[in-house]
């Protein structure tokens, strides 16, 4: 009965939302969004502060925001403050997981599965590759799809692999903590330096370079590496917390 009622309700609500959106003349139909009316138009044209004309990959330099990946430009430059908040959310929830699951962790969680030698060694080999990919993705966030968050997750995945493939493995949690702390603090410090030098928080104080080159976009690659390290260490921390328990 309860389930049926819930079904009816959710169906009803879904139908109402759909029809309401459908009848809403101001709401653009799927695929008919007019970007020209939106703020994102300026992000694509990079003409928030001044109009650089047509931006051409590999040629235009000195843009207000340098990444070739426009999403990165938004995430790490135009709306970098959101990203700081986002990092904080992840930070505080990782911290919360650590708080909730106890701090006196000594040993791995007992699981029935015992990996064999091949798996252990093989996964260690794979670990390096995944780690490197993660770092690569973080560093190239301003050029290609990806960036600090996927890169960081990938770094954490490599740790997860080690955890799963070896039931005795423990990472040095203390190291993660230091890394996390330094990366986070640096992010904020970069912001504050920007405030001191550039007059506003998180302003891009470095030269943005030529769009499309690896060493371009000013602080964005730095920020993304920091985010990558931070996210990686945080998620690794979370993994560690879930896979260990109190004991000898």
């Amino acid at each position: 009965m309860k389930n049926f009622l819930a079904l009816i309700l959710t169906l009803f609500l879904g139908f109402l939302i759909m029809s309401s959106l459908n009848n809403n003349i101001a709401f653009p139909k799927f695929g008919e969004a007019n970007i020209g009316d939106r703020v994102s138009d300026a992000y694509i044209d990079r003409d928030v502060t001044e109009n650089p004309g047509d931006v051409i990959f590999g040629e235009t330099d000195g843009l207000e925001s340098g990444p070739a990946n426009i999403v990165t430009a938004i995430v790490a430059d135009y709306r970098s403050f959101d990203t700081l908040g986002e990092v904080t959310v992840l930070f505080v929830s990782a911290l919360g997981v650590a708080l909730l699951l106890g701090t006196k962790k000594q040993k791995r969680l007992e699981i029935d599965f015992h990996p064999n030698f091949m798996l252990r060694v093989g996964s260690k080999a794979l670990f390096g590759v995944i780690l490197m990919t993660g770092i690569y993705i973080s560093i190239h966030g301003h050029l290609t799809p990806g960036g600090g968050f996927p890169g960081g997750s990938m770094i954490a995945t490599s740790m997860l692999l080690l955890y799963l493939a070896d039931d005795n493995f423990r990472a040095k949690v203390k190291g993660f903590k230091i890394l996390e702390s330094i990366a986070g603090s640096l992010y904020v410090l970069i912001g504050i330096i920007g405030l001191i030098i550039g007059g506003s928080f998180l302003v891009n104080i470095l030269d943005t370079g030529v769009i499309g080159e690896l060493f371009s976009a000013g602080i964005i690659p730095i920020v993304y590496v920091l985010i990558g390290l931070k996210v990686g260490s945080e998620i690794s921390n979370v993994i560690d917390n879930f896979l260990t328990e109190e004991g000898a």
Binding site: L84, T88, F91, V92, L95, K177, I178, E180, S181, G184, S185, Y187, V188, L189, G191, I192, L195, S200, F201
Partner: peptide, 20 residues
């Protein structure tokens, strides 16, 4: 001084505080 410090300083302190 900019009021963003009201947010930035606690955040910075938060990141540092996990060390000790």
């Amino acid at each position: 001084m900019s009021a963003v410090l009201l947010i930035a300083v606690p955040l910075l302190a938060a990141f540092i505080s996990i060390l000790n």
